[in-house]
Design a protein around this nucleic acid. Sequence first.
RNA 1: UGAGUAAGACAGACAGUCGCGCGGCGACGCCGAAAGGCCCGCCGUGAGGAAAGUCCGGGCUCCACAGGGCAAGGAUAACGGGUAACGCCCGCCGAAGGCGACUUCAGGAAAAGUGCAACAGAGAUAUACCGCCGGACCGGCGCAGCCGGUCCGGUAAGGGUGGAAAGGCGAGGUAAGAGCUCACCCAUCGGCUGGAAACUGUCCGAUGCUGUAAACUCUAUCCGGAGCAACACCGUGGUGGGGACACAUGGCCGGCCCGGCCGUCCCCGGGAGGUGGCUGGAGCACUCUGGCAACAGGGUGUCGAGAUAGAUGACUGUCAAAUACAGAACCCGGCUUACAGUUUUGCUCGCGCA
RNA 2: GCGGAAGUACCCAAGUGGCCGAAGGGGCUCCCCUGCUAAGGGAGUAGACGUCUAAACAACGUGCGAGGGUUCAAAUCCCUCCUUCCGCG
Length: 115
Amino acid sequence: MEHTVSLKQNHVFRRLYAKGKSAVNPCLAVYCRKNNSPRTRLGITVGVKVGKAVVRNRTRRRIKEAYRVHEDRFLPGYDLVVVARVKAGHSRYREVERSLLSLADKLGLLRKEET
RNA sequence: UGAGUAAGACAGACAGUCGCGCGGCGACGCCGAAAGGCCCGCCGUGAGGAAAGUCCGGGCUCCACAGGGCAAGGAUAACGGGUAACGCCCGCCGAAGGCGACUUCAGGAAAAGUGCAACAGAGAUAUACCGCCGGACCGGCGCAGCCGGUCCGGUAAGGGUGGAAAGGCGAGGUAAGAGCUCACCCAUCGGCUGGAAACUGUCCGAUGCUGUAAACUCUAUCCGGAGCAACACCGUGGUGGGGACACAUGGCCGGCCCGGCCGUCCCCGGGAGGUGGCUGGAGCACUCUGGCAACAGGGUGUCGAGAUAGAUGACUGUCAAAUACAGAACCCGGCUUACAGUUUUGCUCGCGCA
RNA sequence: GCGGAAGUACCCAAGUGGCCGAAGGGGCUCCCCUGCUAAGGGAGUAGACGUCUAAACAACGUGCGAGGGUUCAAAUCCCUCCUUCCGCG
C-alpha cells in the first residue's frame, strides 16, 4: 500500500481510544485522528472475543483487504484504528467492506469527488 | 447386497485479475564515506492432521554438581521385544464384553508390617444374641416322664444384617454339630508337562486365607533444575558504581549575600531497540533384504515456511456442492481432545442367486 | 510462546473417604429502635432441579465445573476435558 504504514505501538492505540473521533456499527468500530504527516497509519485490532486464531486472522485480513482496495478514496494524513467487533468474525467480506466505507464516510475521511 | 469391525489415504481442484512474507537474479533512480539500504521487475517458494491441549519423552542452551553411594520427593508396573528415549508402539498371556470379526483393562505384592471398613447386625477378622444339644439345681403336674426357670459347658447346621459372616453341595458321622471323614467342584501354593517368559493342563501333593495398595507401605526400574520470553552479541540518550586528570576559574537558580547544582576521559553494568539462536533433520519419496509385527539395515532420488503486532486474502468462471475441526513461532517422537465430506483394503455376521 | 493456581446454594465461602443438601456469614421475611430512612438489636425461613400434589410439606431420585474410573461407599482419591484468574520480555 503506497501511502500507508502499519501502526504498531500500544501507546498510539491508547491515544486514539482516548482522544480520537470514533464511529461504530455492529460489525466494526473506527477511531481516527490527524497525525501531521503525509502518510496514513493504519492499526487493526481483533480481540479474543471475536473467535479463535483462524477466525481472528481471517477477519484481520479482510479488513486489510477492504482498506487496500479502496485506499485511494481515503484522505491521507490520519492515524486510523479499526476494531473488529464480534459480528465481524462471522460476516462475509462484502459486509465488512460496506461497513468500513460507511463508517469512514461518517467521519469525513473520504474524498468528496468520489462516490 | 445389507449390517458391522479393523487399518489407512485425501482435507477442494483448475484457470484468470489484484495483493502479501521469505530466498535468488537483474537493472534505472534515490540515500550513504563505505558496507549496504529503499524502490522496480522476473523466477522460485509459502501452515496442519491435528499446527490445538501442553499430558509424557528427547535434542539444544544456561545454572548446579563435576567420582560413587544413601536418604527425601516424583514417575512407571503381567511377560517378551522395538526405540535416541518414553507413561509410546508391536507381539503374546490373563480378565471382562460381543453370535462373530474384534474391542477394553493403572493388569506387581494383601502369606513382611501398619491403617481403614460408617450405618445395620449377636458378631467385621474375630463373635454365642436367638436357636440346637448335654449336665447340675429349683418349681409345677395327671410324677422311671413332661413343662417352665436359673447356672455351667458344647456347637457355627438354621435366623436376620451387611459390599463382605470363615470354601460350595451331597453323604457319612454325632448328644447336637463341625473338612471331623469321603466323592465331586472351586481357589491359592509347590512339583511335573509344554513354552524364551508371563502362563498353561482330563496330572500329583499340600492348604482353605474378607476387601482396600487410584491408604501408608514393600519389590523392581528410571529421574539434578529451569526453559528460545533459554542463551550469546551490539547498544543512542539518561543514570548508578569504580579509577585517572583538574581543584579554581567558569556556568545555572537569584537583584545581591548565604545556599544548592554542574567537569573531561577510561572501565564495569545494562531498561528501549537491533542481530544471532532459526531450520538439512532420529528428514521426505520410491525400492530391496531381515522380522508375525513394531522396527532395523542397504540402494536411488530429493530439499518442502522461518515471520517478529506476526506473511495465504479478495473477486470471476467450471466441477452437484465447497461446507468440518482449525493457523507454524526453537526443533523432533508420542499421547489426548475436536472434526463436514469423499475414498481404498482386509475380515465377520446375515439375505439372495449359481 | 512458557510456567502456575482455582472451580461447592444468588454472593463470600468451611468441609480431605461414611450420620453431608452440605457448617458459617452476607442475603430474604417479620418485629424492635426512629418523625422517616440507613446503621444497630432480636426472631424466623427456603436453600438447585425433577417425580408426586390443585398448591405446599413429607418422601424418593439426580446433583459440589463436565465426563469416565478405583472403592461396599467419592465434594474428597486417580485420569481426560471445559471455564476463569495470576506470573514471565
